[in-house]
Structure formats: structure tokens, C-alpha cells
């Protein structure tokens, strides 16, 4: 098995770099194009909060100086790029002495862990369900179950989260309503803590799985309908392979390739969905960080969290792109 060609890797890496750079630039440019001045707005908010506020003009001038807003734009831009590369997003404006990167470092593992488990579950479940939907030997009992499970596909994960929260937390009380582990647990590799994490993570993960496995199933089924007419499937059938062997080894295996492409492409929206679900469940991941920062107008944190999320998405896609040629050797040949 040959690895991907250098040209292919290079192109993917350029896309990765461009993605991060373009979004970082958008994040930098837009607040400067937007009407209003963040410094004046923040000071105005302080004035509104505390009533009388002497020396507001001095404070505005001082802040402009401190944040370097008086420098020419190219210098400001270069400084921003430098801070993005060094992951130094400054301090959180609300929980002041904490650097933004610390807040993110605490939240990101929760998001990635939950998202990875939920996505892998949804992807495998959807692939199997889709394969069974297209197969002519699926047991009669399973048949009506499969399309019925598709109804959730039309829902966004946030709404599924709201429903699950209502049914399983509010009405039945089976699952906790917020957080990632019980207040009494001490984080670490002990059984109680792990069980508590699973208990708290079930509903957030389930809301992602419920709404996303259906679309994997639908695309898998569409793919199998095509593949079941291909020559090699017909040949396999004529040779007399067992139907199960034929399904998994001949048909599903070939259908997996486009599925994997779709998975790489879906990562961006999966992250968006996970962020929202976390916000609903108060899960201590990036979603909750973002909600808090938006509420408090903590712009440093918003920028930092957004950049890290974009970086994570782009890196995940890049890794998928690198793995892909090993699954399908034709890719690196085509990319010449």
C-alpha cells in the first residue's frame, strides 16, 4: 500500500492553512467594519452599570492606547496574527486575571471527547442501519423500524436536546440536567467519576446521535442501491458468496469511501451542533464558554474560542484527508 503523494499532502495542507488564515482574518476584520466602537461601547456599559463615572474620556483614550488601537491597521493585523499563532488571546475581560487560553484549555477536551464519541456512534449506527435498509434480506421485523428512526433527521441537535432534557431530566428525572460530572465527584481515574461523566454525557451525546445518524443511513442506503447493480456485486452473487459476506465485504466496503468523504465535510456543522447542545446542557465545553462570553460581551474569549474551534475543525479535516488515501489508494493518483 503506497502512501499519499507529496502533491496531494501539500494541497491539503495549503487548504488547512488557508482555512485558518481566512477565518482568522474575518474574525479580525469584521469587528473593525462593524458600526460602533467596542471600547466606547464597553465604557458606556460600565457607565450604565455604575451610574456616575468620572473620567470616562480618559479611560477610553487609555484603553485605545493599551489595546494598540491607535496604531496603523497593518501593524494591528500583524500583532493579531502573532497572537493567534502563539495562542495568546490575552485575558478574559470578565474573569479578569485568567488568560483566555486557560479557559479554552479547560473546555476543549470536553467538547472534543463528547463530539468524537457521539459522531463515531452516529456514523457507525447510521452506516449499519442504512446498509440494512437497502439489503433485500433484512429480517421482516426490522424493516418498519428503520424508516421510523429517520424522523429525527429533520431536527437540529438543539431541539433534540430540548426534547431529551424535558423528557428524561424534567419528567422522568433519569439524567442530570446540567454539567459534566456530579458536584461531589473528584475528577480523576476513579470509577465514581467515570460513571458520573457517562451519566452526565449521555443526553448531550444522544441528542447529537439521534439527529445525525439518519442522514448517514440515508446516504448509505442510496449508495448501496447503486452498488447492488454494479458488475462486481452481480459477479459475487453469481459466484455464490453468502449474502451477509456479499453485503459487508462487497457492498458496504465500497460504499464506505463516499461516506468517509461526507464525514470529513460534515465536521464543521457537527462542531456547530455540539456547541449548541453544550449550551443547552450547560456542559463545561466550548459551547458554554461561548454562551457565557457572548452574554458578558467578553470579546477576547469569543475570538479565542472561535479561532480554536475553527483550528480544531480544520485540523480534523486535514487528518481525515491524510488518512483517506490509505483507505482509497486511487485518491492520491487522481490528485496528480
Amino acid at each position: 500500500m503506497r502512501g499519499p503523494s507529496a502533491r496531494y499532502v501539500l494541497r491539503r495542507f495549503v487548504i488547512f492553512l488557508l482555512t485558518v488564515w481566512v477565518s482568522a482574518t474575518i474574525i479580525w476584520v469584521v469587528p473593525r467594519l462593524a458600526p460602533g466602537d467596542p471600547v466606547e461601547a464597553t465604557v458606556a456599559r460600565l457607565i450604565a452599570d455604575s451610574g456616575n463615572f468620572p473620567g470616562a474620556q480618559d479611560m477610553i483614550a487609555d484603553w485605545r492606547q493599551r489595546f494598540g488601537l491607535n496604531d496603523p491597521w497593518p501593524i494591528q493585523y500583524l500583532r493579531f496574527i502573532k497572537s493567534a499563532v502563539t495562542l495568546d488571546f490575552g485575558y478574559s475581560l470578565v474573569s479578569f486575571p485568567t488568560p483566555v487560553i486557560d479557559i479554552i484549555a479547560r473546555a476543549l477536551p470536553w467538547t472534543i471527547g463528547m463530539l468524537a464519541i457521539a459522531t463515531l456512534t452516529a456514523f457507525s449506527l447510521g452506516t449499519v442501519v442504512g446498509a440494512l435498509m437497502a439489503w433485500d434480506r433484512t429480517p421482516r421485523l426490522l424493516r418498519p423500524l428503520l424508516p421510523a428512526s429517520m424522523i429525527f433527521t429533520a431536527l437540529p441537535p438543539v431541539l433534540a436536546a430540548v426534547f431529551l432534557l424535558f423528557i428524561f431530566s424534567s419528567l422522568l428525572g433519569w439524567f442530570p440536567t446540567m454539567g459534566a460530572f456530579g458536584r461531589r465527584e473528584t475528577p480523576g481515574w476513579n470509577m465514581d467519576f467515570i460513571l458520573s461523566v457517562i451519566h452526565h454525557g449521555t443526553l448531550p451525546a444522544l441528542s447529537i446521535v439521534l439527529v445525525s445518524f439518519g442522514s448517514w443511513a440515508l446516504s448509505m442506503r442510496a449508495m448501496l442501491v447503486t452498488i447492488s447493480g454494479e458488475d462486481y456485486t452481480v459477479l459475487g452473487r453469481a459466484v455464490g458468496f453468502r449474502p451477509g459476506y456479499l453485503l459487508w465485504r462487497f457492498m458496504v466496503r465500497n460504499a464506505m469511501l463516499p461516506q468517509l468523504t461526507a464525514l470529513a465535510l460534515a465536521l464543521g456543522s457537527l462542531i456547530s451542533g455540539a456547541v449548541l447542545v453544550e449550551a443547552i446542557f450547560n456542559y463545561p465545553g466550548m459551547g458554554t464558554v461561548l454562551v457565557g462570553a457572548i452574554r458578558d460581551q467578553d470579546f477576547n474569549t469569543i475570538q479565542g474560542a472561535a479561532l480554536i474551534l475553527i483550528f480544531t475543525a480544520a485540523a480534523a479535516v486535514f487528518v481525515m484527508d491524510l488518512v483517506y488515501p490509505f483507505v482509497d489508494p486511487r485518491i492520491s493518483l487522481e490528485a496528480r
Binding site: I15, F16, L18, T19, V22, S23, I26, I27, V30, P31, A34, P35, G36, P38, A41, L265, L267, G268, S269, I271, S272, V275, L276, L290, I294, Q297, F299, I302, Q303, A306, L309, I310, A313, A314, V317
Partner: peptide
């Protein structure tokens, strides 16, 4: 193709959050 490949990778919601919280 390059531009849309790049734009496709960016989680739209995340960018929108930044933009909207800046625009107000």
C-alpha cells in the same frame, strides 16, 4: 474550487457568532 473548499471547512456557526457579537 479552492475558495469553496476552504470556506466549507470553516464551521459557519462559529464565524457567525463572532460576526454577530461584533455587529450587535
Amino acid at each position: 474550487r479552492l475558495v469553496s473548499d476552504v470556506a466549507y471547512t470553516i464551521p459557519p456557526l462559529v464565524i457567525l457568532i463572532v460576526v454577530q457579537s461584533a455587529v450587535g
